[in-house]
């Protein structure tokens, strides 16, 4: 059962997932428009690496290795001691930095502003892109009809 109020973990999972998947250009432009930026130290500078993506046999059986994807990660600590992490798809170091700082800010008083100015916009943009594709897919759904056969007429 889904709890009515999402746990702190579920909330963080949501915003970190959003930041990982969102298009780099949009993350960077929204982050560029946010001020003031916090002072921070690097706990881990942005580093590009790979994650082995797994699938399941038959879609639901035992796991197997499908291939790797590029991921960039980093960690920051803001001047007031909040730690932010980022694991983002691709090799965008600036995107990873922005994502880690957003993660740190979401743990404090800035959360409502970040939610309104960045996260909700990312979510809306991605939902719009998803809906656009779903609409095109829907238009290619086959409507079968049965022809009247001679012997039935």
């Amino acid at each position: 059962m889904t709890p009515a109020v999402p746990s702190a973990e579920a909330k963080r999972r949501r915003w970190m997932s959003l930041l990982s998947r969102a298009p780099e250009a949009q993350v960077l432009s929204l982050w560029a428009g946010y001020a003031p930026k916090p002072d921070f130290d690097w706990l881990r500078r942005p580093e590009a690496g790979a994650v082995m993506v797994r699938g399941r046999m038959g879609g639901n059986g035992a796991p197997f290795n499908l291939g790797e994807m590029t991921v960039t990660r980093c960690s920051v600590r803001t001047a007031d001691g909040r730690v932010g992490h980022a694991y983002v798809q691709g090799r965008g170091r600036d995107k990873a930095e922005a994502a880690a700082l957003v993660d740190a800010l979401m743990q404090g008083d800035e959360a409502p502003r970040i939610e309104a100015e960045i996260l909700s916009k990312l979510e809306a943009g991605m939902e719009e892109a998803r809906a656009r594709r779903a609409g095109k897919a829907a238009a290619t759904k086959v409507d079968f009809f049965t022809l009247v056969r001679g012997e039935d007429a």
């Binding site: 580093e47 690496g49 790979a50 082995m52 993506v53 797994r54 399941r56 095109k136 897919a137 290619t140």
Partner: peptide
């Protein structure tokens, strides 16, 4: 190129049942 990348880990197995299908 991929041999130069550090491996951060492995993903959870994909849930292809939850795919946003184009086709």
């Amino acid at each position: 190129y991929r041999t130069t990348l550090p491996r951060f880990g492995a993903s959870e197995p994909l849930d292809t049942g939850a795919m946003d299908c184009d086709r």
